[in-house]
């Protein structure tokens, strides 16, 4: 396998009963990249995430991460290996505070035992203090300074999104999976989120695999784009390569390749307009 690729999925397949949500997907994510997965509703994008993090075990196929096979591990071991994620419908721990959410994210990197906590050993105190300092820094980074003592459920929508990303970052991942981070946002908020994601990559020096619906986001900041439809890969390449691909246009607009040229032009211009904002 290539040295540069951080994540490698080989012939990844997942079936639910008789229905195949994902068929023979090959996916290679290069280290340091922002890699996007796009596709119409029900194309199997979130299933890819679930199969990488082992929230779902793949029916067949392999997942390699940093040259180690991770399919078959439990999700907590995958997290320990260096993959962390967010969810399409935000899944924060709603009944604890923002900063506690971050502290849960640091679970893997706080080295203390429960009896240490009961006895209040110096080691535990040091670890807790260190974790707090780190959580505060992170809180600052996700722009929630001063809001850390609010219950997660009482935060605003955008804040919840950022907190979820912060919580994922707290596990110190090498690879961050973002599931539609701009879902439900207006254009202004979307732009801010895009800037934020780029800041995340720069600051933490990590690779990002992104599921997106908004074409503008994908074309604007991805290094590489994979297009899924009906659980299979139909195109892959740079944003520019993908946006001209007839199969992609067909999948997105539901037009046959033999359809009137006008429709195709329209689709191409849609995709192109998004790309030109880059």
């Amino acid at each position: 396998m290539a040295e540069a690729s951080l994540l490698l999925c080989r012939r990844l397949t997942r079936r639910f009963g008789g229905i195949a949500a994902l068929t023979d997907l090959d996916l290679e994510v290069a280290a340091g990249a922002i890699h996007s997965i796009i596709g119409p509703n029900g194309a199997g994008k979130t299933t890819v995430f679930n199969c990488i993090t082992q929230n779902l075990s793949p029916t067949s196929g392999e997942v390699w991460f940093r040259s180690e096979r991770i399919d078959g591990l439990t999700p907590d071991r995958v997290a320990a290996a260096g993959i962390s994620r967010t969810y399409q419908n935000i899944r924060l721990f709603r009944n604890i505070t923002a900063i506690e959410n971050l502290l849960v994210g640091m679970h893997l990197h706080v080295h203390s035992h429960w009896w240490g906590a009961v006895l209040g050993t110096p080691h535990t105190r040091r670890e807790e203090a260190r974790a707090h300092a780190e959580a505060l820094k992170l809180l600052h980074f996700i722009d929630l300074a001063g809001r850390g003592d609010l219950l997660a459920r009482n935060l605003a929508y955008g804040e919840q999104r950022r907190l979820e990303i912060g919580r994922a970052l707290a596990t110190r991942p090498k690879l961050l999976l973002l599931d539609e981070p701009t879902a439900g946002m207006n254009p202004h908020e979307t732009s801010r989120m895009m800037a934020f994601i780029q800041r995340v990559r720069a600051e933490f020096d990590i690779t990002i695999l992104l599921i997106e619906h908004q074409m503008r986001v994908v074309m604007g900041m991805s290094d590489r784009v994979t297009v899924l439809d009906h659980g299979a890969k139909i195109a892959e390449g740079t944003p520019a390569e993908v946006q001209g691909d007839p199969a992609v246009i067909e999948a997105y607009l539901g037009v046959k390749s033999a359809a009137p040229a006008a429709a195709r032009d329209h689709a191409a211009s849609l995709l192109g307009a998004a790309a030109s904002e880059r």
Binding site: R85, R91, L103, V104, W114
Partner: peptide, 29 residues
Amino acid sequence: WRLENSRLGRAWEALRDDEDVAQALGVNL
């Protein structure tokens, strides 16, 4: 009281709110 404010206590609270997410963050269920 001590456990409540510890790493384990936070893991428990996370587990209570969303078991899958807690596990995905590295909590050993």
